[in-house]
Design a protein around this nucleic acid. Structure first.
Lengths: 216, 216
DNA sequence: GTCTATAGGTTGATAGAC
DNA sequence: GTCTATCAACCTATAGAC
Protein backbone atom coordinates (compact mmCIF):
# COMPACT_ATOMS: atom_id res chain seq x y z
CA UNK A 1 0.00 0.00 0.00
CA UNK A 2 2.62 2.52 1.03
CA UNK A 3 4.92 1.86 -1.92
CA UNK A 4 3.76 2.83 -5.38
CA UNK A 5 6.04 1.22 -7.96
CA UNK A 6 8.95 3.37 -9.04
CA UNK A 7 8.74 5.84 -6.21
CA UNK A 8 11.10 4.53 -3.60
CA UNK A 9 14.78 4.97 -4.37
CA UNK A 10 15.20 1.22 -4.40
CA UNK A 11 12.47 0.84 -6.99
CA UNK A 12 14.00 3.48 -9.16
CA UNK A 13 17.45 1.95 -9.25
CA UNK A 14 15.86 -1.44 -9.76
CA UNK A 15 14.30 -0.03 -12.89
CA UNK A 16 17.63 1.42 -13.98
CA UNK A 17 19.18 -2.01 -13.65
CA UNK A 18 16.30 -3.56 -15.56
CA UNK A 19 16.77 -1.20 -18.49
CA UNK A 20 20.50 -1.78 -18.52
CA UNK A 21 19.89 -5.51 -18.54
CA UNK A 22 17.38 -5.29 -21.38
CA UNK A 23 19.87 -3.31 -23.42
CA UNK A 24 22.68 -5.76 -22.80
CA UNK A 25 20.53 -8.85 -23.36
CA UNK A 26 19.26 -7.37 -26.59
CA UNK A 27 22.71 -6.63 -27.86
CA UNK A 28 24.58 -9.74 -26.79
CA UNK A 29 22.01 -12.32 -25.81
CA UNK A 30 21.76 -14.01 -22.43
CA UNK A 31 24.97 -15.99 -22.11
CA UNK A 32 27.28 -13.35 -23.54
CA UNK A 33 25.95 -10.56 -21.33
CA UNK A 34 28.01 -10.43 -18.17
CA UNK A 35 26.70 -9.03 -14.93
CA UNK A 36 29.74 -6.77 -14.89
CA UNK A 37 28.64 -5.22 -18.18
CA UNK A 38 25.10 -4.74 -16.95
CA UNK A 39 26.22 -3.31 -13.64
CA UNK A 40 28.64 -1.01 -15.40
CA UNK A 41 25.93 0.29 -17.71
CA UNK A 42 23.76 0.93 -14.63
CA UNK A 43 26.60 2.74 -12.80
CA UNK A 44 27.23 0.21 -10.11
CA UNK A 45 29.39 -2.78 -9.23
CA UNK A 46 28.48 -6.32 -10.17
CA UNK A 47 27.99 -7.46 -6.60
CA UNK A 48 25.49 -4.71 -5.93
CA UNK A 49 23.07 -6.14 -8.45
CA UNK A 50 22.29 -8.91 -6.02
CA UNK A 51 20.58 -6.51 -3.71
CA UNK A 52 17.91 -6.00 -6.40
CA UNK A 53 17.82 -9.39 -8.10
CA UNK A 54 18.50 -12.87 -6.78
CA UNK A 55 20.43 -14.08 -9.80
CA UNK A 56 21.18 -13.51 -13.45
CA UNK A 57 18.25 -15.78 -14.28
CA UNK A 58 15.89 -13.71 -12.19
CA UNK A 59 17.09 -10.56 -13.94
CA UNK A 60 16.48 -12.13 -17.34
CA UNK A 61 13.04 -13.29 -16.29
CA UNK A 62 12.11 -9.80 -15.17
CA UNK A 63 13.16 -8.42 -18.54
CA UNK A 64 11.18 -11.06 -20.41
CA UNK A 65 8.10 -10.51 -18.27
CA UNK A 66 8.19 -6.83 -19.07
CA UNK A 67 8.69 -7.69 -22.73
CA UNK A 68 5.61 -9.86 -23.23
CA UNK A 69 3.42 -7.73 -21.00
CA UNK A 70 4.42 -4.63 -22.90
CA UNK A 71 3.67 -6.16 -26.28
CA UNK A 72 0.32 -7.42 -25.11
CA UNK A 73 -0.71 -4.12 -23.57
CA UNK A 74 0.33 -2.25 -26.68
CA UNK A 75 -1.77 -4.56 -28.82
CA UNK A 76 -4.90 -4.45 -26.65
CA UNK A 77 -4.67 -0.69 -26.22
CA UNK A 78 -4.88 -0.17 -29.97
CA UNK A 79 -7.86 -2.49 -30.19
CA UNK A 80 -9.73 -0.67 -27.47
CA UNK A 81 -9.05 2.64 -29.14
CA UNK A 82 -11.10 1.38 -32.08
CA UNK A 83 -14.32 1.45 -30.13
CA UNK A 84 -16.94 -1.29 -29.88
CA UNK A 85 -18.05 -1.37 -33.53
CA UNK A 86 -14.79 -2.48 -35.11
CA UNK A 87 -14.90 -5.64 -37.17
CA UNK A 88 -12.50 -8.50 -36.39
CA UNK A 89 -10.11 -7.74 -39.23
CA UNK A 90 -9.84 -4.13 -38.15
CA UNK A 91 -9.05 -5.40 -34.67
CA UNK A 92 -6.30 -7.61 -36.03
CA UNK A 93 -4.77 -4.69 -37.86
CA UNK A 94 -4.94 -2.65 -34.68
CA UNK A 95 -3.22 -5.42 -32.75
CA UNK A 96 -0.49 -5.56 -35.39
CA UNK A 97 -0.07 -1.80 -35.11
CA UNK A 98 0.29 -1.81 -31.34
CA UNK A 99 2.44 -4.90 -31.30
CA UNK A 100 4.75 -3.61 -34.01
CA UNK A 101 4.97 -0.19 -32.43
CA UNK A 102 6.11 -1.72 -29.18
CA UNK A 103 8.50 -4.09 -30.93
CA UNK A 104 10.19 -1.30 -32.85
CA UNK A 105 10.05 1.54 -30.33
CA UNK A 106 10.51 -0.05 -26.92
CA UNK A 107 12.92 -2.28 -28.73
CA UNK A 108 15.28 -3.24 -25.92
CA UNK A 109 12.75 -5.18 -23.87
CA UNK A 110 10.83 -6.68 -26.74
CA UNK A 111 13.85 -7.74 -28.75
CA UNK A 112 15.79 -8.97 -25.74
CA UNK A 113 12.79 -11.12 -24.89
CA UNK A 114 12.62 -12.66 -28.35
CA UNK A 115 16.35 -13.26 -28.50
CA UNK A 116 16.61 -14.86 -25.10
CA UNK A 117 13.86 -17.38 -25.81
CA UNK A 118 16.30 -20.21 -26.42
CA UNK A 119 19.20 -19.05 -24.31
CA UNK A 120 17.76 -18.95 -20.84
CA UNK A 121 17.91 -21.90 -18.42
CA UNK A 122 15.01 -24.32 -18.61
CA UNK A 123 13.31 -23.23 -15.41
CA UNK A 124 12.56 -19.71 -16.52
CA UNK A 125 12.12 -20.59 -20.17
CA UNK A 126 9.26 -22.94 -19.41
CA UNK A 127 7.56 -20.36 -17.22
CA UNK A 128 8.04 -17.78 -19.92
CA UNK A 129 6.62 -19.99 -22.66
CA UNK A 130 3.40 -20.24 -20.69
CA UNK A 131 3.07 -16.46 -20.61
CA UNK A 132 3.87 -16.24 -24.29
CA UNK A 133 1.26 -18.83 -25.12
CA UNK A 134 -1.33 -16.77 -23.30
CA UNK A 135 -0.48 -13.94 -25.65
CA UNK A 136 -0.77 -16.39 -28.51
CA UNK A 137 -4.29 -17.34 -27.42
CA UNK A 138 -5.24 -13.69 -27.46
CA UNK A 139 -4.35 -13.56 -31.14
CA UNK A 140 -5.97 -16.92 -31.78
CA UNK A 141 -9.26 -15.52 -30.50
CA UNK A 142 -9.07 -12.57 -32.85
CA UNK A 143 -8.58 -14.89 -35.79
CA UNK A 144 -11.43 -17.17 -34.71
CA UNK A 145 -13.68 -14.15 -34.48
CA UNK A 146 -12.71 -13.16 -38.00
CA UNK A 147 -13.48 -16.58 -39.36
CA UNK A 148 -16.79 -16.82 -37.50
CA UNK A 149 -17.76 -13.52 -39.07
CA UNK A 150 -17.15 -15.03 -42.49
CA UNK A 151 -14.14 -12.85 -43.18
CA UNK A 152 -11.63 -15.67 -43.72
CA UNK A 153 -11.94 -18.28 -46.46
CA UNK A 154 -12.17 -21.79 -45.01
CA UNK A 155 -9.22 -23.06 -47.06
CA UNK A 156 -6.88 -21.36 -44.59
CA UNK A 157 -5.41 -23.08 -41.56
CA UNK A 158 -6.05 -20.47 -38.90
CA UNK A 159 -3.24 -21.53 -36.65
CA UNK A 160 -0.66 -21.57 -39.43
CA UNK A 161 -1.90 -18.23 -40.66
CA UNK A 162 -1.57 -16.71 -37.21
CA UNK A 163 1.94 -18.01 -36.63
CA UNK A 164 3.14 -16.91 -40.06
CA UNK A 165 1.86 -13.41 -39.44
CA UNK A 166 3.26 -13.24 -35.92
CA UNK A 167 6.55 -14.35 -37.41
CA UNK A 168 6.46 -11.42 -39.79
CA UNK A 169 6.03 -9.15 -36.76
CA UNK A 170 8.60 -10.82 -34.55
CA UNK A 171 11.25 -10.77 -37.21
CA UNK A 172 10.80 -7.09 -37.97
CA UNK A 173 13.40 -5.83 -35.46
CA UNK A 174 16.00 -7.66 -37.53
CA UNK A 175 15.62 -5.39 -40.51
CA UNK A 176 13.66 -2.31 -39.46
CA UNK A 177 15.22 1.10 -40.16
CA UNK A 178 13.62 4.24 -38.78
CA UNK A 179 14.20 6.10 -42.03
CA UNK A 180 11.92 3.82 -44.03
CA UNK A 181 8.27 3.02 -43.29
CA UNK A 182 7.08 3.79 -39.74
CA UNK A 183 5.58 0.95 -37.67
CA UNK A 184 1.98 2.02 -38.29
CA UNK A 185 2.48 1.95 -42.02
CA UNK A 186 4.14 -1.45 -41.81
CA UNK A 187 1.19 -2.79 -39.87
CA UNK A 188 -1.09 -1.35 -42.51
CA UNK A 189 0.79 -2.99 -45.35
CA UNK A 190 0.81 -6.33 -43.59
CA UNK A 191 -2.89 -6.12 -42.84
CA UNK A 192 -3.70 -5.10 -46.42
CA UNK A 193 -1.78 -8.02 -47.77
CA UNK A 194 -3.49 -10.36 -45.36
CA UNK A 195 -6.96 -9.14 -46.23
CA UNK A 196 -6.88 -8.57 -49.98
CA UNK A 197 -3.57 -9.92 -51.21
CA UNK A 198 -1.13 -8.02 -53.34
CA UNK A 199 -2.61 -8.70 -56.76
CA UNK A 200 -4.73 -6.20 -58.66
CA UNK A 201 -8.39 -7.27 -58.75
CA UNK A 202 -8.58 -7.82 -62.50
CA UNK A 203 -5.42 -9.94 -62.61
CA UNK A 204 -6.49 -11.91 -59.58
CA UNK A 205 -9.81 -12.95 -61.08
CA UNK A 206 -8.10 -13.50 -64.41
CA UNK A 207 -5.69 -15.85 -62.67
CA UNK A 208 -8.53 -17.81 -61.15
CA UNK A 209 -10.31 -18.01 -64.48
CA UNK A 210 -7.12 -19.32 -66.05
CA UNK A 211 -6.76 -22.02 -63.45
CA UNK A 212 -10.38 -23.09 -63.93
CA UNK A 213 -9.96 -23.31 -67.68
CA UNK A 214 -6.75 -25.29 -67.32
CA UNK A 215 -8.54 -27.68 -64.97
CA UNK A 216 -11.48 -28.31 -67.27
CA UNK B 1 42.04 -32.36 -58.01
CA UNK B 2 42.86 -35.44 -56.00
CA UNK B 3 40.55 -34.66 -53.08
CA UNK B 4 36.81 -34.65 -53.68
CA UNK B 5 35.06 -33.08 -50.71
CA UNK B 6 34.02 -35.53 -48.04
CA UNK B 7 36.16 -38.38 -49.25
CA UNK B 8 39.35 -38.09 -47.27
CA UNK B 9 39.10 -39.15 -43.67
CA UNK B 10 39.95 -35.66 -42.58
CA UNK B 11 37.08 -34.24 -44.61
CA UNK B 12 34.65 -36.74 -43.19
CA UNK B 13 35.45 -36.02 -39.58
CA UNK B 14 35.44 -32.32 -40.37
CA UNK B 15 31.87 -32.77 -41.51
CA UNK B 16 31.01 -34.70 -38.36
CA UNK B 17 32.33 -31.81 -36.30
CA UNK B 18 30.37 -29.34 -38.40
CA UNK B 19 27.11 -31.18 -37.80
CA UNK B 20 27.80 -31.44 -34.09
CA UNK B 21 28.50 -27.72 -33.99
CA UNK B 22 25.31 -26.86 -35.87
CA UNK B 23 23.31 -28.94 -33.44
CA UNK B 24 24.89 -27.32 -30.41
CA UNK B 25 24.66 -23.79 -31.80
CA UNK B 26 21.05 -24.34 -32.66
CA UNK B 27 20.20 -25.59 -29.22
CA UNK B 28 22.20 -23.22 -27.06
CA UNK B 29 23.31 -20.34 -29.25
CA UNK B 30 26.88 -19.29 -29.85
CA UNK B 31 28.14 -18.17 -26.47
CA UNK B 32 26.54 -20.95 -24.45
CA UNK B 33 27.87 -23.72 -26.67
CA UNK B 34 31.23 -24.85 -25.34
CA UNK B 35 33.84 -26.47 -27.53
CA UNK B 36 33.89 -29.30 -25.02
CA UNK B 37 30.20 -29.97 -25.67
CA UNK B 38 30.68 -29.90 -29.41
CA UNK B 39 33.72 -32.12 -29.28
CA UNK B 40 31.90 -34.53 -27.01
CA UNK B 41 28.98 -34.76 -29.40
CA UNK B 42 31.44 -35.45 -32.22
CA UNK B 43 33.25 -38.15 -30.18
CA UNK B 44 36.50 -36.35 -29.67
CA UNK B 45 38.34 -34.15 -27.23
CA UNK B 46 38.10 -30.38 -27.23
CA UNK B 47 41.72 -29.85 -28.21
CA UNK B 48 41.35 -32.04 -31.29
CA UNK B 49 38.85 -29.65 -32.82
CA UNK B 50 41.69 -27.26 -33.54
CA UNK B 51 43.11 -29.60 -36.11
CA UNK B 52 39.98 -29.00 -38.22
CA UNK B 53 39.09 -25.43 -37.33
CA UNK B 54 41.21 -22.49 -36.29
CA UNK B 55 38.88 -21.21 -33.61
CA UNK B 56 35.34 -21.25 -32.28
CA UNK B 57 34.58 -18.29 -34.52
CA UNK B 58 35.77 -20.14 -37.59
CA UNK B 59 33.59 -23.10 -36.67
CA UNK B 60 30.58 -20.86 -36.30
CA UNK B 61 31.27 -19.16 -39.60
CA UNK B 62 31.46 -22.51 -41.37
CA UNK B 63 28.06 -23.45 -39.94
CA UNK B 64 26.52 -20.15 -40.99
CA UNK B 65 27.99 -20.38 -44.48
CA UNK B 66 26.42 -23.79 -44.92
CA UNK B 67 23.16 -22.39 -43.53
CA UNK B 68 22.67 -19.54 -46.01
CA UNK B 69 24.01 -21.52 -48.95
CA UNK B 70 21.65 -24.37 -48.18
CA UNK B 71 18.62 -22.12 -47.94
CA UNK B 72 19.50 -20.38 -51.16
CA UNK B 73 20.09 -23.60 -53.07
CA UNK B 74 16.83 -25.05 -51.79
CA UNK B 75 14.96 -21.98 -52.96
CA UNK B 76 16.51 -21.79 -56.43
CA UNK B 77 16.14 -25.52 -56.99
CA UNK B 78 12.37 -25.27 -56.52
CA UNK B 79 12.20 -22.37 -58.93
CA UNK B 80 14.14 -24.20 -61.61
CA UNK B 81 11.90 -27.21 -61.21
CA UNK B 82 9.02 -25.01 -62.37
CA UNK B 83 10.40 -24.74 -65.88
CA UNK B 84 10.81 -21.56 -67.93
CA UNK B 85 7.14 -20.57 -68.28
CA UNK B 86 6.38 -19.92 -64.61
CA UNK B 87 5.07 -16.49 -63.73
CA UNK B 88 6.83 -14.43 -61.05
CA UNK B 89 4.30 -15.16 -58.32
CA UNK B 90 4.58 -18.87 -58.93
CA UNK B 91 8.34 -18.48 -58.64
CA UNK B 92 7.97 -16.73 -55.31
CA UNK B 93 5.79 -19.53 -54.01
CA UNK B 94 8.39 -22.04 -55.20
CA UNK B 95 11.14 -20.12 -53.41
CA UNK B 96 9.06 -20.11 -50.23
CA UNK B 97 8.55 -23.84 -50.57
CA UNK B 98 12.23 -24.61 -50.99
CA UNK B 99 13.31 -22.13 -48.34
CA UNK B 100 10.78 -23.38 -45.84
CA UNK B 101 11.57 -26.99 -46.56
CA UNK B 102 15.23 -26.39 -45.82
CA UNK B 103 14.44 -24.32 -42.75
CA UNK B 104 12.25 -27.02 -41.25
CA UNK B 105 14.03 -30.17 -42.42
CA UNK B 106 17.75 -29.36 -42.38
CA UNK B 107 16.86 -27.45 -39.27
CA UNK B 108 20.15 -27.55 -37.39
CA UNK B 109 22.17 -25.51 -39.86
CA UNK B 110 19.43 -23.13 -40.86
CA UNK B 111 18.20 -22.41 -37.36
CA UNK B 112 21.67 -22.19 -35.88
CA UNK B 113 22.48 -19.64 -38.53
CA UNK B 114 19.47 -17.49 -37.73
CA UNK B 115 20.04 -17.71 -33.99
CA UNK B 116 23.70 -16.86 -34.12
CA UNK B 117 23.15 -13.72 -36.18
CA UNK B 118 23.56 -11.45 -33.18
CA UNK B 119 25.78 -13.56 -31.02
CA UNK B 120 28.88 -13.95 -33.11
CA UNK B 121 31.87 -11.59 -32.90
CA UNK B 122 31.76 -8.60 -35.22
CA UNK B 123 34.34 -9.84 -37.69
CA UNK B 124 32.39 -12.87 -38.84
CA UNK B 125 29.00 -11.27 -38.36
CA UNK B 126 29.78 -8.52 -40.86
CA UNK B 127 31.07 -11.01 -43.39
CA UNK B 128 27.98 -13.10 -42.88
CA UNK B 129 25.60 -10.18 -43.30
CA UNK B 130 27.04 -9.59 -46.74
CA UNK B 131 26.26 -13.16 -47.78
CA UNK B 132 22.80 -12.89 -46.32
CA UNK B 133 22.15 -9.67 -48.19
CA UNK B 134 23.04 -11.40 -51.42
CA UNK B 135 20.29 -13.87 -50.64
CA UNK B 136 18.02 -10.93 -49.91
CA UNK B 137 18.73 -9.45 -53.34
CA UNK B 138 17.73 -12.73 -54.91
CA UNK B 139 14.29 -12.37 -53.33
CA UNK B 140 14.18 -8.68 -54.15
CA UNK B 141 14.58 -9.52 -57.83
CA UNK B 142 11.69 -11.95 -57.71
CA UNK B 143 9.44 -9.29 -56.24
CA UNK B 144 10.53 -6.68 -58.77
CA UNK B 145 9.72 -9.13 -61.54
CA UNK B 146 6.27 -9.65 -60.08
CA UNK B 147 5.59 -5.95 -59.92
CA UNK B 148 6.91 -5.32 -63.42
CA UNK B 149 4.51 -7.98 -64.65
CA UNK B 150 1.66 -6.02 -63.09
CA UNK B 151 1.00 -8.66 -60.46
CA UNK B 152 1.49 -6.41 -57.42
CA UNK B 153 -0.61 -3.35 -56.70
CA UNK B 154 1.53 -0.20 -56.55
CA UNK B 155 0.32 0.74 -53.06
CA UNK B 156 2.68 -1.85 -51.62
CA UNK B 157 6.22 -1.09 -50.51
CA UNK B 158 8.08 -3.95 -52.14
CA UNK B 159 10.94 -3.95 -49.69
CA UNK B 160 8.68 -3.99 -46.64
CA UNK B 161 6.56 -6.70 -48.20
CA UNK B 162 9.60 -8.85 -48.85
CA UNK B 163 10.99 -8.49 -45.37
CA UNK B 164 7.66 -9.17 -43.71
CA UNK B 165 7.26 -12.36 -45.72
CA UNK B 166 10.84 -13.47 -45.11
CA UNK B 167 10.17 -12.87 -41.44
CA UNK B 168 7.21 -15.22 -41.60
CA UNK B 169 9.55 -17.86 -43.02
CA UNK B 170 12.46 -17.23 -40.70
CA UNK B 171 10.31 -17.39 -37.60
CA UNK B 172 8.69 -20.68 -38.55
CA UNK B 173 11.23 -22.90 -36.79
CA UNK B 174 10.07 -21.34 -33.53
CA UNK B 175 6.64 -22.92 -33.73
CA UNK B 176 6.67 -25.60 -36.39
CA UNK B 177 5.49 -29.08 -35.38
CA UNK B 178 5.87 -31.98 -37.74
CA UNK B 179 2.43 -33.31 -36.91
CA UNK B 180 0.64 -30.25 -38.28
CA UNK B 181 0.94 -28.82 -41.78
CA UNK B 182 4.00 -29.94 -43.79
CA UNK B 183 6.38 -27.26 -45.12
CA UNK B 184 4.99 -27.37 -48.68
CA UNK B 185 1.48 -26.74 -47.43
CA UNK B 186 2.70 -23.89 -45.24
CA UNK B 187 4.40 -22.30 -48.22
CA UNK B 188 1.18 -22.69 -50.16
CA UNK B 189 -0.90 -21.00 -47.47
CA UNK B 190 1.54 -18.13 -47.19
CA UNK B 191 1.63 -17.66 -50.94
CA UNK B 192 -2.16 -17.81 -51.18
CA UNK B 193 -2.52 -15.19 -48.53
CA UNK B 194 0.04 -13.01 -50.23
CA UNK B 195 -1.61 -13.25 -53.61
CA UNK B 196 -5.33 -13.14 -52.88
CA UNK B 197 -5.68 -12.34 -49.21
CA UNK B 198 -7.78 -14.31 -46.77
CA UNK B 199 -11.16 -12.70 -47.39
CA UNK B 200 -13.88 -14.29 -49.51
CA UNK B 201 -14.31 -12.43 -52.82
CA UNK B 202 -17.84 -11.21 -52.14
CA UNK B 203 -16.98 -9.82 -48.69
CA UNK B 204 -13.78 -8.26 -49.96
CA UNK B 205 -15.51 -6.25 -52.69
CA UNK B 206 -18.35 -5.50 -50.26
CA UNK B 207 -15.76 -4.11 -47.87
CA UNK B 208 -14.29 -1.90 -50.56
CA UNK B 209 -17.76 -0.72 -51.56
CA UNK B 210 -18.47 0.14 -47.93
CA UNK B 211 -15.30 2.17 -47.63
CA UNK B 212 -16.05 4.06 -50.83
CA UNK B 213 -19.57 4.88 -49.63
CA UNK B 214 -18.29 6.02 -46.26
CA UNK B 215 -15.75 8.23 -47.99
CA UNK B 216 -18.28 9.91 -50.29
C1' DG C 1 22.21 0.07 -0.70
C1' DT C 2 26.61 -0.12 -2.42
C1' DC C 3 31.29 -1.31 -2.07
C1' DT C 4 35.61 -4.57 -2.28
C1' DA C 5 37.52 -8.98 -2.36
C1' DT C 6 37.40 -13.43 -3.52
C1' DA C 7 35.82 -18.25 -3.91
C1' DG C 8 34.79 -21.81 -7.23
C1' DG C 9 33.89 -23.06 -11.71
C1' DT C 10 34.01 -22.92 -16.80
C1' DT C 11 35.86 -21.37 -21.06
C1' DG C 12 38.86 -20.88 -25.51
C1' DA C 13 43.14 -21.92 -26.82
C1' DT C 14 48.04 -23.95 -26.84
C1' DA C 15 51.90 -27.38 -26.34
C1' DG C 16 53.76 -31.60 -26.84
C1' DA C 17 53.38 -36.80 -26.57
C1' DC C 18 51.88 -40.49 -29.41
C1' DG D 1 44.88 -36.75 -36.36
C1' DT D 2 43.87 -37.30 -31.74
C1' DC D 3 45.09 -37.25 -26.99
C1' DT D 4 46.27 -35.20 -22.25
C1' DA D 5 47.52 -31.47 -19.55
C1' DT D 6 47.39 -26.95 -18.57
C1' DC D 7 47.19 -21.71 -18.76
C1' DA D 8 45.11 -17.33 -18.47
C1' DA D 9 40.88 -15.06 -18.61
C1' DC D 10 36.46 -14.73 -17.45
C1' DC D 11 32.17 -15.78 -15.22
C1' DT D 12 28.30 -15.97 -11.29
C1' DA D 13 27.66 -15.63 -6.77
C1' DT D 14 28.78 -14.75 -1.81
C1' DA D 15 30.72 -12.43 2.44
C1' DG D 16 31.49 -8.77 5.11
C1' DA D 17 32.91 -3.75 5.68
C1' DC D 18 30.85 0.70 5.41
Amino acid sequence: MSEEPGNTKSERTRLRVLHAAAKAFRQNGYAASSLRDIADSADMQAGSLYYHFDSKEALAEAVMDAGVLGARHAATAEIEALGPNANPLEKIEAAFRGHLGYLLDEADFAVATLRMLHQTPDAIRLRHLRKQRAFGRFYAQLFEEARSAGLVRPEFDLSALRMLLLGALNWSPEWFHEDRLPPEELARQLSRMMQHGVMPANVATFGRRQRKERAS
